[in-house]
């Protein structure tokens, strides 16, 4: 049976991606430091996943049949929380406690505290293994659910990723979907200069994954790839390499590694928010 899509418009998804960027800027204001670059690079991917594809029930966060979403690049949680709040997993007012003493919402997602967070992360390279365990368990129990793990391209340097990739390919996990947010930067600079991971598609294909490579900010392309990955028939795991731009949506951040982590003073914050409201410049 075909999995249902919500069939929302690209315009709505673009608005949600805008919201992710806007709320990232606002939340960073609360604590004085934030991962702008990697939140902005994944905005279209997360918007399309949650508003078009994933089967979740905000009123029933642990619904057994739900699709799972794991944020391997946990430092981008600041871009996930506003989506979970907007969907109703918790109120947006709760998010005002972001990073404050005892808050459920820290720099990395915590499954024990945040409704809608399917697993915790923060230690890069762990979540694809957890996702494959979920996929094994769901398949064993005949669940129709999908498990989606969004990773960073810097994360490709972790050896455990390739342990998990090899296992998922060998276990033939058709309910497991990987996405690489290929924004090309990490803490120390450009990924290609720190530890080049190319040719990336060929690596995953060699590990028995089917791979598509897309522009991760092109919403029709993102939706087509997610439809293939989540809803199409396959014998094994699928990977989407989403070529993205770190800091996408704010001109002075785009393509920079310097805004992997940072803080915008009030004047620059307003400048960034104005650019975000104007939307992406192709």
């Amino acid at each position: 049976m075909a999995r249902a899509r919500k069939n929302v418009t690209d315009a709505l998804l673009a608005e949600k991606a805008k919201m992710i960027r806007r709320e990232t800027v606002k939340l960073t204001d609360l604590c004085g430091s934030g991962h702008y670059g990697s939140s902005f690079s994944m905005a279209e991917l997360v918007a399309a996943l949650y508003y078009e594809f994933l089967h979740v029930r905000p009123a029933e966060p642990r619904w057994p049949e739900r699709d799972r979403f794991l944020l391997g690049k946990g430092h981008a949680a600041i871009g996930l929380y506003p989506v979970l709040a907007d969907l109703g997993f918790f109120s947006s007012e709760e998010l005002d406690s972001y990073t404050r003493l005892g808050s459920p919402f820290g720099d990395h997602p915590d499954m024990t505290k945040v409704k809608g967070a399917d697993f915790s992360s923060g230690s890069i390279g762990h979540n694809l293994s957890v996702a494959l365990g979920m996929a094994l368990g769901l398949r064993l129990q005949g669940s129709p659910a999908r498990v989606v793990c969004l990773m960073g391209d810097g994360e490709m340097a972790e050896g455990q990723i390739w342990e998990a990739a090899m296992a998922a390919g060998n276990f033939g996990l058709a309910n497991l979907i990987g996405i690489v947010d290929n924004n090309r930067v990490g803490s120390d600079g450009e990924v290609a200069r720190i530890m080049d991971n190319e040719p990336l598609a060929e690596k995953w294909q060699a590990f028995k994954w089917q791979v598509q490579r897309i522009d991760g900010h092109d919403l029709p392309a993102v939706c087509a790839a997610l439809d293939w990955a989540l809803n199409g028939a396959a014998a094994g795991p699928r990977l989407i390499i989403a070529d993205t731009i770190a800091g996408k949506g704010v001109s002075f951040m785009e393509g920079t590694w310097q805004w992997h982590l940072g803080y915008l003073g009030p004047a620059d914050r307003d400048r960034a928010l104005a650019e975000i409201e104007r939307g992406l410049v192709p």
Partner: peptide, 15 residues
């Protein structure tokens, strides 16, 4: 390490 992570994932599905 992959095995340990997968065990965690399996546990979340009720196994």
């Amino acid at each position: 390490r992959n095995m340990i992570g997968a065990a965690a994932g399996l546990a979340t599905t009720g196994l």
